[in-house]
Amino acid sequence: MTEPPLGRRERKKAATRQSIADAALHLFLERGYDAVSIRDIAEAADVSVTTVFKHFTGKEALVFDREASTDAHLVAAVRRRDAGQSVLDALRQHVLDTWLPIAADPQMEGFNRLVDSTPALRAYSERMWIRHADTLSAAIADELGVERGNLACAVLARFVLDVPGLAQGRRDRRAAVEEVFDILADGWQAPGKPTA
């Protein structure tokens, strides 16, 4: 199912939003999160402070500018999967298609340092993660016809959302993602000892 094309007005709003988010990230990486004000971001993006707040709820939302669509994409990965494709395989494909390009972005290392070194951003990220886990768990439960809050659905949602963190920093991120999903699919096995 394809999304209808955006109209001119929507494209302009999306471009303004992206320009603001890009300016914010550039300033945060350059100066540090706490040293940048909303006014600084507005000036860098050549918009008013009011315009910044029309697009974002606050400074944290500027760092996680794509967060708003994450829930919708997770739910779509479950509900719009190909006929005969398992929920687990659909989520595997979703992580491969969405996270690998993000992880390859040259700014990703700086972004991760920014989040890890800023208590407000770490807390915001944790709240986002919980919200996404709850949304994904509910979508999986609905799709499988079981009660929301089902432990197996909650466990799968949490592990799927942890895959990027587990694969980050690995030499071959794609292989790491595949290995984590293989463990989820086949169950954990004790790793063999390396032979001398």
Rank of each mutant, 00 (worst) to 15 (best):
M1T: 10
P4F: 11
P4K: 08
R9E: 11
E10C: 04
K13L: 04
K13M: 02
A14P: 07
A14H: 09
A15E: 10
S19H: 11
S19G: 14
S19P: 00
I20W: 00
A21T: 02
A23I: 05
L29H: 04
L29T: 04
R31C: 05
D34C: 02
S37G: 07
I41G: 02
E43C: 01
A44Y: 02
V49I: 14
T51A: 06
T51Y: 03
T51H: 02
K54D: 02
H55V: 05
H55S: 01
F56V: 03
T57P: 08
E60I: 00
L62C: 01
V63C: 05
V63Q: 02
E67S: 06
D71W: 00
V75N: 00
A77P: 06
R79W: 02
R79D: 03
D82K: 13
S86F: 09
V87Y: 03
V87F: 03
D89E: 15
A90N: 08
A90Q: 09
A90T: 08
R92W: 10
R92C: 07
V95I: 15
L96Q: 12
L100W: 02
L100R: 05
P101E: 06
I102C: 07
P106W: 11
N112K: 13
L114V: 12
D116F: 11
A120F: 05
A123Y: 07
Y124H: 13
A133F: 00
L136D: 01
L136F: 05
A138F: 06
A139G: 05
L144H: 12
E147D: 14
G149K: 10
C153V: 08
A154C: 10
V160K: 00
V160M: 01
P164W: 05
P164K: 03
Q168H: 13
R170P: 00
D172C: 06
R174G: 07
R174E: 13
R174K: 15
A176V: 09
D182G: 11
D182Q: 14
D182N: 15
L184I: 13
L184D: 08
L184R: 06
A185Q: 15
A185N: 11
D186Y: 12
W188H: 13
Q189T: 15
Q189D: 13
A190R: 15
G192W: 10
G192Y: 08
K193C: 00
P194H: 12
